[in-house]
Amino acid sequence: MAFTTHTTPSGFLLPSIHSAPPFFSQQPNKTTLASFTDHWIKLILAYARHRRLFYLHVEDAETSGNDWDEVLKNERINRHVLPVYLEHIMGVMVEKNLAAFEPARQTRSVMLYWRLPEEWAETLHEWATSTGHLNTIMTFYDVTDPPIESPLSSIPVALLRKAIGILTKTNRAQLIAAADGEGVRFFSK
């Protein structure tokens, strides 16, 4: 079988390496392992951005019928990523600050940074500015579930908190604690 690209049902273009059977196995050669892991990281982050997926779990490699089937499995060559290899890939992603273990103190679930927290901070501030929300207190719900779809729709609260923290350090936002939840106020640059 020739290594070819493949378009998934969701419209994502899988690279040709995805049709190579060894790509799905944790390789014993350190150089090959590092190369394949880097390819997996790029593939996972690109797919997550394409589908707006924020979390990856080791269980996604163990079960069928989840959002990650198109990437973690290749039915055409009868291969799938083994959970232990996915856990390794996720660990490298965390080391490279391309993901964070979520919840903390475990290694089987990560929040993906297909946009780095710094990029989310800029997106958040641009959104607040363009929608006229400067100097207005907004709940986290107002940001993650706005009446009109935005780039921030469905962003995990943990990632939103990181982005707000970055904006707070540059005096472009203030975290507000309230009895019924958390909020944020944005300031101009």
Rank of each mutant, 00 (worst) to 15 (best):
R161T: 13
P117G: 08
N171H: 09
L152F: 02
L134W: 09
S153L: 10
I77E: 01
A34C: 05
P21M: 03
R49W: 05
I44P: 05
A100W: 02
P83I: 14
A121D: 11
E70I: 11
N97F: 04
H80I: 05
R185A: 11
W68R: 04
T7E: 15
Y141M: 09
I164V: 15
T129I: 06
E149V: 06
H57G: 00
E95T: 13
P15G: 07
T168I: 05
F54P: 07
H57R: 15
E59N: 03
M1V: 12
F186Y: 08
E182R: 07
V92D: 00
E122S: 04
V184S: 03
R108L: 00
F140H: 05
A178H: 12
R161S: 05
S19K: 08
K169Q: 07
R108N: 13
L14G: 04
K189G: 05
S130H: 10
I17C: 14
L112W: 08
I155R: 01
G65S: 14
T123K: 02
L82R: 15
E62A: 15
D69S: 08
F140T: 05
P151H: 03
P22Y: 09
W40G: 06
A104W: 02
A46N: 15
A179V: 09
R49N: 10
S16P: 01
P83W: 15
E149M: 02
A128W: 10
Q106L: 11
Y47G: 08
M111N: 11
I164L: 02
